[in-house]
Structure formats: C-alpha cells, structure tokens
Amino acid sequence: EPSQADLDALLSAVRDNRLSIEQAVTLLTPSSGGGSGGGSMDAKEILTRFKDGGLDRAAAQALLAGRTPA
C-alpha cells in the first residue's frame, strides 16, 4: 500500500509530466490488473482531475489513499 510520501511523489511526477497518468495508475495498482479498488473514482480519473486542476493535492491524495486496498 502506498504511503502518503509515495502518493505525494507520484502526484508531483504526474503534474510535472515526469510520469504519465497510465504509468501512475500501473504503479498504484500493481497486482489488481489495473482495476479500481472499488472506490467511487478510479485512480486514472483522480489523477486526470488532479492534473487538470479539478482536484487539489490533498484531495487527490485522500482519494487515492482511500481507494487503495489495505
């Protein structure tokens, strides 16, 4: 399960175009075949909204942490 520091680094990389959204989703869902963790939004949607400015960093982190299976 990614830590808050991992999520923060991942969000920074996506925002700075050092990591594509697809690459980030793969890192967030290493063994689930890329499927959502059952959250209301999947990781790709969360990351896309964050990059487009629709979500701030704290909200994106909380959503990603919340949808990651324990």
Rank of each mutant, 00 (worst) to 15 (best):
R57I: 08
A60K: 00
A59N: 07
A13V: 02
L28A: 03
M41G: 08
S32K: 04
K51T: 03
Q23L: 10
L47S: 01
A70M: 07
V25T: 05
D8T: 07
A62M: 08
L47W: 01
E1I: 13
A9P: 03
S3F: 14
K51E: 02
A62D: 08
T26L: 14
R15L: 15
V14F: 03
E22S: 07
T26C: 13
G33W: 10
V14M: 02
A9F: 08
S32E: 12
L47H: 00
D52Y: 08
L55G: 01
A59C: 08
A5H: 08
R15F: 10
S31G: 07
D42V: 05
R15M: 14
R18Q: 08
R67L: 12
A9N: 11
P30N: 13
L47D: 01
G66L: 11
R49A: 12
L64A: 01
Q23Y: 08
Q61F: 06
N17T: 04
R18M: 07
A5Y: 15
D6R: 07
D42G: 07
A43V: 15
A5P: 14
Q4R: 10
L11G: 01
L63R: 02
G35R: 01
S12I: 10
L11H: 00
A59R: 06
P30F: 07
A5E: 10
D42R: 08
G34K: 05
I46C: 02
E45V: 05
A9C: 14
L63N: 02
L55Y: 04
I21K: 01
I21C: 02
Q4H: 15
L27Y: 10
L28H: 02
D6W: 15
A65G: 13
A5S: 10
L47C: 02
A43S: 09
L63Y: 07
D56I: 03
L28S: 02
T68H: 15
P2T: 13
D16T: 06
D56P: 06
P2F: 14
A9Y: 12
G37N: 13
D56M: 04
K44M: 05
A70R: 01
G66N: 11
G66W: 07
G34D: 12
Q4Y: 14
K51F: 07
E1V: 08
S36Q: 11
G38A: 13
